[in-house]
């Protein structure tokens, strides 16, 4: 694929959420959410209506006219999630989305992902070191040194899945430590 085609794929088929939010500081929350459709040159009324719905859906409606510098980390990340979903991507790629957040904001972002999955049918592909965040996933691939170590699929409750995850992590981290 050439650069043009890659850009189109990034814009139409993929959604990105980054650890450091990557919001444009000169744009308001609402304008940031609109950005993917602005790049795609989509019709304005539909774009504004969709962005407005996302603001309400992710609980950021009251801060829609604020700038990134004026909102919290959780609100920034929810804005980033809303922005990532604007073009209804096939996959939402999230790179350590909770890495910079406190527990309350972390929960809010996870809720936003769940909502995206539930209401928009989005597939969320998340890279994380946070087992709490990973426990909300349906399927977790555990990597070790760039190789797949194991794969887990959630069957029971989230808590049970988290225990299962922690067990794997214990296995991972425990090796070679017995002597210490």
């Amino acid at each position: 694929m050439d650069e043009q085609e890659l850009a189109r794929v990034r814009n139409q088929n993929l959604g990105f959420v980054f650890q450091d939010f990557m919001l444009l500081d000169g744009l308001t929350v609402f304008e940031n959410i609109c950005l993917p459709q602005v790049i795609a040159d989509s019709p304005v009324p539909q774009m504004e209506a969709r962005a407005g719905r996302f603001c309400e859906a992710f609980g950021i409606g009251r801060i829609r006219d604020k700038y990134p510098a004026e909102i919290s980390g959780g609100e920034k990340q929810r804005t980033a999630v809303a922005r990532a979903l604007m073009n209804s991507p096939y996959i939402l790629l999230a790179d350590e989305p909770t890495g910079n957040l406190d527990s309350r904001s972390c929960r809010a972002v996870i809720d936003a992902f769940l909502q995206a999955k539930r209401e928009m049918g989005a597939t969320v592909f998340m890279v994380t070191h946070d087992s709490f965040a990973a426990s909300f996933c349906d399927r977790v691939i555990v990597l070790r040194d760039g190789m797949i170590y194991t794969e887990l699929t959630r069957r029971g409750t989230r808590r049970e899945f988290m225990d299962e995850l922690l067990e794997v992590l214990r296995e991972l981290g425990g090796e070679g430590d017995d002597e210490e």
Partner: peptide, 16 residues
């Protein structure tokens, strides 16, 4: 520089 990187990741092509 970072803003342009963000735009790239959001699917903005080189001409945009």
């Amino acid at each position: 520089r970072e803003v342009f990187l963000s735009l790239k990741k959001l699917g903005a092509d080189a001409s945009y």
